[in-house]
Design a protein around this nucleic acid. Structure first.
Length: 523
RNA sequence: GACCUGGUAGCUCAGUCGGUAGAGCACAACCCUUUUAAGGUUGGGGUCCUGGGUUCAAAUCCCAGCCAGGUCACCA
């Protein structure tokens, strides 16, 4: 109780300090003055009472014309976004969670008696753009044909003390003074969401995409699970981790870079289909395709292989496109991407033959190094066959892969958790789905042979000792689990952020993550 | 990490050859009863990212730094 009291006291004290000592802009001072005057008039600028809402902006705009009788007695709340005051009558715009609707206020209707303060003083001078208000009244259509709420009573629900950018759209649909500065938009996403039309829609689509995938997987009978974010050993991907420390246990912990090894332990335990939408963390560079924390959906299904998983991925992503866009064709930048099944499938060797004109099947390291030189790809001694093939693929093929495509059968060195190919030595049973030149999924027939797995980990350890910080560290408990026996299984990792980028035509990963990572503001 | 570009009013942006800092929206005051990027009149508002330097004089030129975006590298 005492600490609560002192916290509250410190909070109030520091708030007052800030308000009195912080340098305020003229517009902030105006709003504080308005707030004081409201209090003097007996109006609480932050009232606690519920304001009962019985309709949304979208509901009115969608249905009023068809069903005018239902909109005689409405109550709606939202943010005041624009005002056009014409003496004793005014138009304004109210924005709620569903959209914007025009409201109409007449002095003598909201102030039927002698006292015109509510209109003349409160509405015209003490309320500002950004304030939350509640109105009651009825819906009508103006002379120019705009569906509008005729206000009979008006109340202030929450005062806004900072000026919101005013974004306007003209009759041709052109946006003026859009809140555009990306740094401000990402740092103050609340403002971005409040004033920029379309931003909210991107994030609503993000949730719908995740729901669509979840629905699909639940429909197949797979179980959504949760596995540790804090891991004593990081594994399941090639990446540098974030390291942290547990005080009581006095031991290092890592934020997960993947959850693969935990989900496979669950397959060992007898679950036959498990998935998780996982926040993963990778301590690497950032650009418009990489945020240090990102969302990956991983799925493991017993008794299946990577060929089966390819069909599932096609079905799943096609469903997402249909759920979000109603068609398999999705506009991204200058391209129309078509997710209609079946997608093209190339082995990695076929892709390199097609796009680089090189036949690398059966080539030795010297020959590959020569090819790399031809393509001006830098090589070093740590690079084996696999690494060079991977490099050749990413420089010559990937940029050309715009339409969704599966690339299959990767070199074994790059895939320490994938099962060796049933018929092609040196390769593993793995595929990536690539779209718009970026990987969106990665999957394999999971390696379930504990002896082979131990050897792969040992190979990785050698790479690690040579200075490869991304090489995987051996996980003895995982091997122990495999030794008890894991059924054959197909596994998948799907980059949710990148899928959302594509489905929402967003050029940067920061556009699909509410609060992308940023350096602190200097103050 | 390297290179390129940018940072000016609350927002969006101009700012010429180095010579007292500009516009639109927003804000304040006034007018206006169906407007809609409402309109009209008047007015206020600036650490020109920060710190140095050159100069009689710097938003502007030079150097260093901070933040952001882009390209590359690293990385899936």
């Amino acid at each position: 109780m005492r600490w609560l009291f002192s916290c509250t006291f410190v909070f109030l004290y520091s708030t007052r300090q800030q308000i009195t000592h912080m340098e305020l802009t003229d517009q902030q001072r105006e709003r504080l003055k308005a707030l004081e005057e409201l209090v003097k008039l007996g109006i609480n600028p932050f009232p606690p009472e519920e304001f009962e809402v019985n309709v949304t902006a979208k509901d009115i705009l969608d249905n009023y014309e068809r069903d005018k009788l239902s909109y005689k007695n409405i109550s709606i709340a939202g943010r005041l976004m624009n005002r056009r005051i014409m003496g004793s009558a005014s138009f304004a715009e109210l924005q709620d969670g569903t959209g914007r609707i025009q409201i109409y206020l007449k002095r003598d209707e909201i102030c039927p008696g002698e006292d015109k303060t509510l209109y003349n003083r409160v509405f015209k001078h003490l309320m500002d753009i950004g304030d939350f208000i509640g109105v009651k009244g009825y819906v009508f259509t103006t002379q120019t044909g705009e569906t509008t709420v005729h206000v009979k009573s008006l109340s202030l629900l929450s005062k806004s003390l900072r000026p919101l950018p005013v974004v306007k759209t003209d009759s041709e649909g052109k946006t003026h003074d859009e809140f555009r500065d990306v740094e401000l938009r990402y740092r103050q996403r609340y403002v971005d969401l409040a004033v920029n039309e379309g931003v909210r829609d991107v994030f609503m689509k993000r949730t719908r995409i995740i729901n669509s995938i979840r629905e699909f997987l639940n429909g197949k009978g797979y179980l959504e699970v949760e596995t540790p974010v804090l891991q004593p050993l990081y594994g399941g991907a090639r990446a540098r981790p974030f390291k942290t420390h547990h005080n009581t246990l006095d031991m290092p912990l890592y934020l997960r870079i993947a959850n693969e090894l935990y989900l496979k332990r669950l397959i060992v335990g007898g679950f036959e289909g498990v998935y998780e939408f996982a926040k993963d963390f990778r301590n690497e560079g950032m650009d418009r395709f990489h945020n240090p924390e990102f969302t990956q959906m991983e799925l493991y299904v017993a008794f299946k292989d990577y060929l089966w998983m390819m069909n599932l991925v096609e079905e799943m992503v096609e469903k997402v496109a249909l759920d979000i866009h109603g068609t398999t064709q999705v506009k991204y930048g200058d391209n129309i991407l078509d997710f209609c099944r079946p997608w093209k499938r190339y082995t990695m060797y076929e892709a390199i033959k097609k796009y680089a004109g090189l036949d690398i099947e059966g080539t030795d390291e010297d020959q590959l190094e020569k090819y790399c030189r031809q393509l001006s790809i830098k090589t070093d001694k740590s690079m084996g066959r696999g690494a060079m093939i991977d490099e050749i693929f990413s420089t010559t093929c990937e940029p050309n892969l715009v339409q969704p495509v599966f690339i299959t059968d990767y070199p074994v060195e790059m895939s320490p958790l994938a099962k060796k190919h049933r018929s092609k030595p040196g390769l593993v049973e793995r595929f990536e789905a690539i779209c718009n030149a970026k990987e969106i999924c990665n999957a394999f027939s999971e390696l379930n042979d504990p002896i082979d797995q131990r050897q792969r980990f040992e190979e990785q350890l050698k790479l690690h000792d040579r200075g490869d910080e991304e090489a995987m560290v051996p996980d003895e408990d995982f091997i122990r689990a495999l030794e008890y026996g894991m059924p054959p299984a197909a596994g998948l990792g799907a980059g949710i952020d990148r899928l959302v980028m594509i489905m929402t035509n967003s050029p940067s990963i920061q556009d699909v993550i509410f609060f992308p990572q940023m350096k602190p503001e200097r103050k």
